[in-house]
Each structure stands twice: as C-alpha cells, then as structure tokens.
Design a protein around this nucleic acid. Structure first.
Lengths: 94, 94
DNA sequence: AATATTTGGTTTATATCATAAACTTGTTTA
DNA sequence: TAAACAAGTTTATGATATAAACCAAATATT
C-alpha cells in the first residue's frame, strides 16, 4: 500500500538540494549552502552522493581566481524526484 | 528559506504510521504492520518513539486470549503531522 | 499428550547515515 | 608578514533505521 520512499531523496538536505535544482538551471555550491542553511562539510558529502547516483552533475571551474562548484540536475534526477513526490503524496494525503 | 523537517516524522515507517492514524480513529499493531509492510521489531521500536513523543497513544489489552496493541494519534501528533506536511510542501513544490 | 508452529510482540545488535569538526589550499586584508 | 577569509574536502562521531534474535502464550499437528 505505501510505496517505498527513495532513501537517497528522503533526506532533508539532499531533498532541499534537489528541490533547488528542479527550479533553476544551475546553482553553485555557495548559493546552495546559503539557501539550505547547511554547513559546507555536510553539503559537500550530500552533493557527492547525489552526483555518484547520477541525480546531479557537478562541474568545478574557476571564476576569476576563486574555485566555483556548480550543480545541475540530470534527467534521471528529475525523474526520481518526481517519483519521490508522487510516492510521498500517499503518505501525506494530498 | 527551507523549514526544518521534524526528524521524528521524517522517517518512512513513522510517517506511514502517522499517516494511517490521521485517517482512522484507531488501528492495532497487526493492522499497521500489514499495511506498512514492516517487520514487527521495527514497528515496535517506531511506535514506541511516537508514543514517547506524545504523538500517539498506545493501549494494550486482550481480545479474547490474544494481546492487542492499539494506537491512536493525539492532538499533538495531528498538529505536528500537519506542520510537517506544510514544511514538506516547500521542498516538493506543491 | 507431547511437540511443533503460529501469533503478537520486545530487546538487542549492526550497519548506515547525517552531521559537525577538523583540515587543506589558496586569496585577501591589516 | 601574519592573520583572517573563502571554498571546499576529509574524517570522526553520534544517532537512527532496520533486522535478527528472542520470548510467552496459544493453537495446530502427530
């Protein structure tokens, strides 16, 4: 009766990251960190997990002399996010 | 920007339990176990956590000769569930 | 009647995970 | 030149979800 909730997405911070990346074309590390109010360490770990799963793509470049890590969601990530939302609706009754 | 997701509710099984108890007056252990497809051990632990937090009330009696554990959500539990759902909506964009 | 199985759980152990703390590398600023 | 800051990464830890093992009583089997 209750569908499984994808554990990779059922995590506050990873869900927030994906939520951001569903709505913008791309977002950088600092922006995501500020928007989610997370620590850099935690964010670094969770971004790596989403990246390893192929849910997001991460590119590191330099902007002037500062490193800049940018993220964008992949089609897979977008599909999984949508599926997660559908599953969740069963639980919260909407 | 993103609200906290109550960690007590942000757990697949506990959320499913609360989801059931939001929609029925009361439900017993076996029913919840079957509906959520959980193991008895896991369910026992999670019910105890919800109970300790005051989100549900648990009553143990005998039905004929068999023990029967019944659960119902409290007003606190219902309020917290509703708040959780509201917070979650920010994340999933609905 | 004795034994095995099922029912309805609880307790304990483990493996994973989220998170924070500590560290690194390079860049400004005082 | 030293101190502080920026942008991350790596490591350590504590909590958590889950399953495995266990228990007591009832029912079914031989």
């Amino acid at each position: 009766m209750f569908k499984e909730l994808n554990p990779l997405l059922h995590s506050q911070l990873r869900l927030a990251v994906m939520s951001i990346l569903m709505n913008v074309d791309e977002a950088d590390f600092v922006y995501i960190k500020n928007t989610t109010n997370s620590t850099a360490g935690n964010l670094s770990v969770q971004i790596e997990k989403l990246s390893a799963a192929g849910y997001i793509e991460v590119t590191k470049k330099f902007e002037g002399r500062k490193p800049k890590t940018s993220c964008r969601s992949t089609q897979l990530g977008q599909r999984e996010f949508a599926a997660y939302v559908e599953a969740l609706k069963q639980y919260i009754g909407i």
